[in-house]
Nucleic acid binder design. Structure first.
Lengths: 163, 163
DNA sequence: GAAGATTGATTCGTCAATCTTC
DNA sequence: GAAGATTGACGAATCAATCTTC
């Protein structure tokens, strides 16, 4: 007779070890994202989604909408609307692209750079507490190495309609 | 004189190693989620979000809406609407909870269990290709160990308004 | 009054169609 | 015709308010 399971019924995916790893990845991600997003909303009146895009704009020279698509893995329409919000908020600007008039060059405003500077303390404090602390320093290095492997692999893999 | 950087401008978060790890986690997650979601939509006419909830319903004995909230880290309203969709699609049922009439007990229908069984092959194939292959077997074990550390830590950590 | 859940209003991201430029 | 980007319609998740039951 089998021992009583804490999970009463057996799901066809319940004994799938690979799915278990993936599910854990998703849930850890969701939790970290939601908590950091809530902190940024309350402390700096900005969402983590907008901040992530702003960071890419600031870090990428001659950034175009397409760069947000390929870096963040969001759709073109979504990227265009994020930029709309950043421009309205005064954090970024669209400038005509002299090299290709189909696209604009995105640049952070001084207010955008100031925002990135202001949030850094909170972001670091949060990630120290929820990412660095629970992992040993070696664990953090390991995690980064494994994520790089996954990232590099998906880069070159054939796939769907997103870039 | 500094070497020319591939990322033309320096973001205040650009040289933040912790943020870099977090950003990689987010982007690996987004990519895997989007690709698997696209495959499930086209092959089985179901979203990964709905499937994830259905899996929790099937795996949790006497599952309530609150269990979806605490397991998937979504809001109560969101969980309630996911259940709506699963019920309409014929994959799950709400039954009165004899122990507490405020809540319902969620159970998968035979169609729901059949769906979970049908998708398993595709899910496994995808995760083998995009999760197991790029990592060595040892790497997969390491990743799972690190994710468990993060998961267990966030479980006990004080935080925002989501459970 | 607190806990579990549902509903309506809002927001955000995707999708498809469209426009401009290469 | 293809590539880059924008817009409107649609789908899904959050939030706040509400209802029922503990």
């Amino acid at each position: 007779m089998a021992l009583r399971q804490p999970r009463g019924a057996a799901s066809p995916l319940a004994n799938d070890d690979l799915y278990a790893v993936f599910a854990r990845l998703v849930r850890v991600h969701t939790r970290l994202w939601n908590q950091l997003d809530a902190r940024l909303r309350s402390q700096h009146a900005v969402t983590l989604a907008d901040l992530s895009s702003l960071e890419v704009v600031a870090a990428t020279g001659g950034c175009r909408v397409q760069d947000l698509v390929s870096t963040l893995h969001i759709t073109v329409g979504g990227a265009s609307k994020v930029v709309d919000r950043l421009v309205v908020a005064g954090y970024a600007e669209r400038a005509p692209n002299p090299q290709d008039r189909r696209s604009s060059v995105l640049t952070p405003t001084s207010a955008g750079l100031a925002l990135l500077g202001q949030v850094r303390g909170d972001v670091d404090a949060f990630l120290s507490q929820h990412l660095a602390t629970p992992l040993s320093p070696a664990g953090l290095t390991d995690l980064d190495r494994l994520l790089r492997l996954l990232h590099d692999h998906t880069i070159t893999a054939p796939a769907g309609h997103r870039e």
